[in-house]
Amino acid sequence: MLDFDLTVNGRRYPVRAEPRKLLSDVLREDCRLTGTHVGCEHGVCGACTVLVDGKPSRACLIYAVQMQDHEITTIEAVAKDGKLTPLQQALHEVHGLQCGFCTAGIVITFEAYLRENPRPTEEQVREVLAGNLCRCTGYHNIVKAILRVANERRDAQA
C-alpha cells in the first residue's frame, strides 16, 4: 500500500492504495466520484475518459499512483454551480444520450476537443467521437449536439 495525494477537480484527496490500483477505480472508490464509468478496462470504449492536466485520457490505463503532481478533472466538475455547459445543454436538448453510461466520457472528450478545435466539421467530430463507444444512440444526436455547440460559437463570433 502507498499513501499519496491526488488532485481531482481542484480538491486534494489523500489516497491509500496499491500501486496497481487503476485511476478509474481510485476515482470511483476512494474519491467517491462515480461519474467516471468503467466499460472495458482496456482502453477501447472511452467511458472512463477523464482529463489529465486538461488532456483527455483513459482512466483505466493509468495507475492512480502515477497521477501525483497532476490535475485530474472528472465529469462531476464539468457543470459549474449546477449550470450545464453548452455541450451538456445541447446533448440534453437534442436527445444525445439514452442509457447515459457512456455520456461522461463523451462530454469530457469534447469539452477538451472543442477547446482545441472550437469549430470542427462533422467529419472531424465523427473522427474524434469514434474513440467513444455508444450502444444506444447510433451517434446521430451526439454529433448533432456537438455541431450545434460549434455552430453557436461560429454565430457568436460572426
Binding site: R28, R32, L33, T34, G35, T36, H37, V38, T74, I75, E76, V78, A79, L84, Q88, L91, H92, E93, H95, L97, G100, F101, T103, A104, V107
Partner: peptide, 21 residues
C-alpha cells in the same frame, strides 16, 4: 419534451449498480 433523466447522467450523478456504495 427533453428527458428528465438527462440531468443526472450529464453531470456524472447517475446511479448504476456499481455506483452504489
Amino acid at each position: 419534451i427533453p428527458r428528465k433523466e438527462d440531468l443526472r447522467f450529464l453531470t456524472g450523478r447517475g446511479r448504476y449498480v456499481d455506483d452504489i456504495e
